[in-house]
Structures are given as structure tokens and as C-alpha cells.
């Protein structure tokens, strides 16, 4: 049996997993469960294991929307226009032919549209899809407040 990797290293590895895999990893052992459900981890990865938490819902939606761009509608219904909008986008690293999930938090505050990008190298993969999502959100935002 190999020694368990240091928690800090394990966290680095787990952070690179898509949410579905990450949730599976919570039942690997107790220490992984504590790690993934820790506040620190959740704030980095924007997920929650608590079903009452909006983050849980969005991680579930992500699963259903595998390899497609999710409709923003359920998210709007859930949070309303005034609050945080989480938008999950699936894209592929065509160069590496690995499908990967990109999690992009779109935060609307006032009329300012801010794109919060988690630790991943998301900027490189800002695809056409992503631009369409942003335009859509801006459009909806404008029509709602005018």
C-alpha cells in the first residue's frame, strides 16, 4: 500500500476533477469526504454537497448538461436576476482531445457583468459558446432592468 498523499497535494489533484468525479471521490474514504466538503474546497470549486445549497443544484445541472451548453433558464428561475448566476459550460480541449468541464461563474452585480474565473486556465478556452452566453446574459439583464 502506498502512503496516502499529503492532503494539500490531494486537494490539488481533486480540484482538477469534473464535479461528477469529485462527488464520487467523497465516498473513497473519510478524509477525502472531509476534504471535498470543507469550506475551503467548496469556495475554490463552487460546489456543495448540501442539497439545500444552490451550488448543489448547479452541480447537478452540470451533470445533466454533459457536453452541451446548459440552458440558463433554470438558473435564472433559481436565483433571480439580481443574484449570482452560475453558468456551467462544457467545452473540449480539442488539442488534447480531452473533454473537460469548465466552470465559469458569471456574477452580475448592479449592471456590471463580471466574469469570475476559478483557478483553471479558463481564459485560453473562452470559446464562441462562452461569448454567446455572455451576450445572452447581457441581453436578458438589459431587458429586465429597462
Amino acid at each position: 500500500m502506498t502512503d496516502y498523499l499529503l492532503e494539500v497535494v490531494m486537494q490539488e489533484i481533486l480540484l482538477r476533477l469534473p464535479i461528477e468525479s469529485l462527488i464520487k471521490c467523497t465516498s473513497v474514504c473519510m478524509s477525502w469526504y472531509s476534504l471535498v466538503s470543507s469550506t475551503a474546497f467548496i469556495s475554490i470549486r463552487s460546489i456543495s454537497l448540501d442539497k439545500d445549497d444552490p451550488f448543489y443544484l448547479t452541480s447537478h445541472l452540470l451533470k445533466r448538461g454533459r457536453r452541451t451548453l446548459l440552458s440558463l433558464e433554470p438558473v435564472f428561475v433559481c436565483f433571480g436576476m439580481q443574484s449570482i448566476i452560475h453558468c456551467f459550460v462544457q467545452t473540449s480541449f480539442s488539442s488534447e482531445q480531452i473533454h473537460r468541464q469548465l466552470l465559469v461563474d458569471l456574477v452580475l452585480r448592479g449592471k456590471q457583468l463580471t466574469l469570475l474565473v476559478p483557478l483553471w486556465k479558463v481564459w485560453c478556452y473562452l470559446t464562441k459558446q462562452m461569448q454567446q452566453v455572455m451576450e445572452m446574459i447581457q441581453m436578458l439583464w438589459n431587458s429586465d432592468t429597462d
Binding site: M1, T2, Y4, K24, S27, C29
Partner: peptide, 16 residues
């Protein structure tokens, strides 16, 4: 380990 079963991940790292 992406999208592998829980059992696979355990044996990958040698976790009990």
C-alpha cells in the same frame, strides 16, 4: 482517475 469508479480510485492510490 477522472470518472472512474470509487473502487478504482481506491486501488489507484492504495486507500483503505
Amino acid at each position: 482517475i477522472e470518472n472512474k469508479s470509487v473502487e478504482y480510485v481506491r486501488s489507484f492510490f492504495g486507500i483503505d
